[in-house]
Amino acid sequence: MVNLTLKERLKRTLNGKTVDKAPVLAVTQTGTKELMSLTKYYWPDANWNPKALAQLAISAHKEIGFEAVRIPYCLTVLLEALGCEIEKGDTTRQAAVKGHPYNSRKPVPIGKVPETILSSGRIPIMIEAIKIIKDIVGDDVPIIAGSEGPVTIASGLVEVTTLMRWFIREKEGLLEYLQYGSDAMISYANALLDAGADAFVVLDPVASPELISPKDFNDLVLPIYKDISKKIKGDGILHICGDITAILPSLKESGFIGLSIEEKTDMKEAKDTLGEKIKLIGNISTSKTLLNGTYNEVYEECITALEKGTDVLAPGCGLAPMTPIKNCIAMIDARNDYFKK
């Protein structure tokens, strides 16, 4: 087990092979204000510039020690390419979707994903950024790309409360939109994997049982996930926010090889339900400890997460921009100490 590269360690971990220690990294956004100050690449502009995207992402690997480079910093790239108006945000505020082009009580037929999708919006910038990252970090450091998942895409296209009502009133239209989001996301994911990304994270906060029922999730969303995990040409990871304990049995059948969870989902309970079928990633609190806690509190939480069986030690969600680098380093230290024989 000597001399595993970071990429080999992550790949082996996700694919259920033995490793010397759990990788420590983020599958969610890593841009923080301190990293922006260090690199001099700031939000919001960094979201629209491939070099800035690459350098800010690499800094989380170089300055913190996360064992992967992860882009982008928001959940708007694909939605922008699909025609949503974007609010750019600022240094401490993520870009967010502002306009919902398909908001309508009755679903408007949405048709097929435009063939030009991969040259739309910021998608070419993301592809370029991945190539730059690969040139700089080489072949040994994994690159993780992520995007909004199908339910979140649909919620961006039609507005979330409208979409929620469709779950009951307009199931057919809902499924059409979920399929549309899924088709768009699969081409996007595969383009980024072709460009050099090693893993792809589907981030789907709107699919959380904090919003929709586990039954709706199982009946309407799970089949879409199964299709996505089959069609993504690389290691597929799923991230859903909130307490997702209720949908863990469904997720076991989703086909993803990694599941990223927040601290609201208990790591041990997740492990007990999923067994070795899906590798668990998480679940250090981005709010309670990483942002608002101390180095020691983060350290302790990491040891607990490792004891409870996390396969990849990671923040439970996107890092808050004001998160201190020092608190993130506690994650690296805790992992190193835990695996010291």
């Binding site: 929620m164 009502r165 779950f167 009133r169 049982p209 919003l211 029922s213």
Partner: peptide
């Protein structure tokens, strides 16, 4: 009791 979720509540509110 987690027997109703956001879609159901929104329709109830309507």
């Amino acid at each position: 009791l987690k027997e109703m979720f956001v879609p159901e509540i929104l329709l109830s509110a309507d």
